[in-house]
Nucleic acid binder design. Structure first.
Length: 199
DNA sequence: CGTTGGATCTTCT
DNA sequence: GAAGATCCAACGC
């Protein structure tokens, strides 16, 4: 198994990286002693200054978007709809605000811990542990305090265990929930492993 | 099954 | 002051 290095994320082809992340393992031990993780099965690419769907469109630089302007391998987390944290991995070099949204996992490690984290918040039982970006961040214990930190073993990291996703197993579609982005909403920048997203 | 609406709050205008 | 890279349960069929 190989830990994915910063170099991996500092390459310039964000779409290719988003595709390569499919089948990789992501781990979180943000809470010490609580190791959780799973296989990445769905990603979306956000292409920085030229992408209307990206928070950093037109190189809009704010406190929130700042991590995206850093070098690849950093973490960008932000709050959506007031209640969901969304996990992104920054790519490309410094000053180019590309990022990849991790949308879904197939849970493999620490299922009991994820189950617990998904319990409270008023509701009773959750079905999917890590299907959907908000759910996934909750199961991994990610909050926006992680935003701006680096991927790091023992905190939050990604490993390659040699899983290969064949081209015919990969699905491509427009990104979810970005209708406001005009023509960019149609771009085929969402990637997923066919059949894996269904429960 | 598919569709609908409520929860909830940071961020930027 | 408005909008938003969502989730879930409750409906209606």
């Amino acid at each position: 198994m190989t830990l994915l290095s910063e170099h991996f994320f500092q390459r310039e082809n964000t779409q290719a990286i988003a595709q390569e992340l499919l089948g990789k393992l992501i781990f979180s031990e943000i809470e010490k002693g609580k190791l959780v993780g799973g296989i990445i099965i769905e990603t979306e690419a956000y292409l920085g200054g030229e992408d209307r769907a990206c928070h950093a469109y037109n190189y809009r630089r704010t406190h929130r978007t700042e991590p995206m302007f850093g070098p690849g391998g950093q973490i960008y987390v932000y709050l959506c709809y007031g209640l969901h944290h969304l996990l992104n991995i920054v790519t490309h070099g410094e000053g180019v605000p590309h990022a990849i949204l991790i949308r879904s996992l197939q849970p493999t490690h620490g299922l009991d811990i994820m189950q617990q984290r998904r319990l409270f918040k008023g509701h009773k039982q959750k079905k999917a542990l890590t299907k959907g970006p908000g759910a996934l961040a909750q199961a991994l214990g990610i909050t926006r305090e992680c935003s701006g930190r680096k991927l790091e073993k023992g905190f939050l990291w990604i490993e390659d265990r040699g899983t290969l996703v064949e081209a015919n197993q990969m699905g491509i579609s427009p990104r979810i929930g970005v209708d406001y982005a005009g023509p960019d909403a149609q771009l085929p920048l969402r990637f997923y492993i066919k059949g894996a997203i269904l429960n």
